[in-house]
Write a protein that binds this DNA or RNA. Structure first.
Length: 269
DNA sequence: ATGTCGTACTCCGTACGA
């Protein structure tokens, strides 16, 4: 019989200097599965033993030196692990696990989409061109009807697709993460693949919803100039099983925080 | 509104990515 579990996704912005924050999340929310992005270290330097002591004895890591990198920490065993490359760059931006939930299993894809630099013009900015190519490859991969498996996509997609996913739609239309070419591409991938935006199913438009606040703000909470860059997508079979979504805004105020906060989903059986 | 972070090398300051 399948059991319920909780799943968190969090861009940790260097896992080695924020192991204490992962410990705090484990103490306060105890997610069964934790998907991390921007671990910024190769697998050999990943602080596995710290997390093993927290009960995360199952760990799947795709890391590289200095930049990017993703990992899944889990109290549920993995039936499978997979890593996918994008844009032939050798970047560590994806890892998938199938968690054994006691039933047929749930496939979880953990993604870190390129940020895209500052200038939203692919002819002038290679990083933006890379982001658009990455989205093209995502479309070819998961932008078709989903396979007959229970699947979830989470991670830092570095795009705030909806008007109410940013503090000012009008002021951010020309800012990378909210430009029409990016938001249209991401929504086309999601809807084309039949993926359900689980965060918005639980916290609907027009409520403002953010998961990231820049470090370059004197008072991030008072200014509240956030963006929803982190996402939880569920395939049609899993969407009705997502019983709750929580954005842990308080984590942005923790000591030496990441600029992203965890998003936690409860998946019922 | 060019602001604050983290990482790596150029290695105690600078360059880069975000």
């Amino acid at each position: 019989m399948a059991r319920s579990f909780t799943l968190a996704t969090w861009n940790i912005n260097s896992v080695r200097i924020r192991t204490d924050l992962v410990e705090r999340l484990a103490a306060e929310r105890a997610p069964d599965v934790l998907c991390l992005q921007e671990i910024k270290c190769p697998e050999a330097n990943f602080p596995s033993s710290v997390f093993r002591k927290l009960g995360y004895v199952h760990q799947a890591i795709n890391g590289q030196k200095g930049y990017h990198g993703v990992a899944v920490l889990s109290r549920l065993p993995f039936a499978a692990i997979d890593r996918r490359g994008f844009c032939d760059k050798g970047d560590a931006r994806h890892i998938a696990v199938t968690v054994d939930d006691g039933g047929d299993g749930v496939e979880i894809h953990n993604l870190y989409v390129p940020a895209g630099g500052d200038e939203p013009d692919a002819t002038l900015n290679e990083k933006f061109a890379h982001k658009l190519q990455f989205l093209d490859e995502m479309a070819a991969w998961i932008g078709k009807a989903p396979a007959g498996r229970a699947s979830i996509v989470v991670g830092d997609l570095n795009i705030a697709p909806l008007e109410h996913d940013v503090w000012s739609h009008k002021q951010l239309l020309g800012v990378v993460s909210h430009t029409p070419v990016e938001t249209a591409a991401l929504e086309a991938i999601r809807t084309g693949g039949g993926w359900v935006d689980a965060m918005r199913s639980h916290i609907p438009v027009p409520q403002k919803l953010y998961t990231w606040w820049s470090y370059r703000s004197a008072d991030w909470s008072a200014a509240d100039k956030g963006r929803r860059l982190d996402h939880v997508w569920a395939c049609p079979a899993v969407a009705p099983r997502v019983a709750a979504i929580e954005v842990l805004r308080a984590a942005r105020g923790w000591d030496r925080p990441s600029d992203h906060v965890p998003v936690i989903a409860r998946i019922e059986r």
